[in-house]
Amino acid sequence: MKLKANASKLRELTQSREFSLLLVMVLLCGLIQWRSGGVFFSGSVISQLTQNYAYIAVLAFGMLLVLLIGGIDISIGATMAISGMSTCLLMRDGVITNPLLAYLFSIFIGAVCGLVIGLVISKGKVIPIIATLGMQYIFRGLTYFVSGTLWVSADKMLPGYKNFAQSSFLGVNNLFWIVIVLFVAMIVFLKWTGFGRQIYAVGSNADAAKISGISIDRVKIIVYTINGAIAGLAGAMYTSLYASAQGNMATGAEMDVIAACVIGGVSLNGGQGSAFGVLLGAITIAIISKSLSLVGIDAFWQRALKGAVILLAVLVNVLVQRNAARKALEGREI
């Protein structure tokens, strides 16, 4: 009995979306390692990868929540910009004198942005893509407005703020520690808290969730606020990593992040997706962005290839799902 249970569990594992993605990733890494003449799995490349793309993974966790409730947020790049910029401005003017305070302030600004989006979507009954499209304009415009279209350069920032992104703890870069902590928090949050289950419930069937007593508006507002806070965190990570704050920073980050989520198996219709899948998706995006030059592919191919990989990933996902549905149907007929 026990053996059988284990076997079915193993089958469930090998048939899961995350498993196939992991397989593809291992193959991809192997290919890159081979073609790059063994440079890929070197300490410096891995540390650059984890350091430079940590913010994508962080944003992807927030986007996961939004996609799970069937929403979308294309304003996170702008939210990053406004929170990162206002933090750096206050640092320049000597108002914020503590790196930790800077991070908290950036998270706070992001959360406020997210709260506004959540209110517009839930109370104003506006479709998420349009609401966040409008908010994207507003936040990006505000970024230029508060900064007077000026930059905040590295010498105006607190040394602790800049060093945070460059230093590491137990051999792992601080920024990637944020990813790890957030990853664990997401798993616990989505799997073992009532609110986490409510998020899945709203995304799978909003009407059923409503009848069972879940306040959909409340779930939406909180999810968008969390997503905003995470974008604020990413804004601080981004500005401390590159030690500069510019009005056009992180333009189009939302596209990379949505791509990471979709590659990771998150459904845009809501209710489907896991933190593990999203992490793998973000790592895949990072590998594609980083490794092309290592393999000797022209850097100008990068963007087109990234788009092709995203398209391929969603197409394969559909084919796998169709196959699974057909098998399930056949199983029932017998």
Binding site: V262, A304, L311, V314
Partner: peptide, 16 residues
């Protein structure tokens, strides 16, 4: 998501 991907592909081809 489809047109998001193809947008990147089209612009990417132009970049190439």
């Amino acid at each position: 998501i489809v047109t998001l991907a193809t947008n990147i592909i089209f612009r990417g081809l132009s970049e190439r």
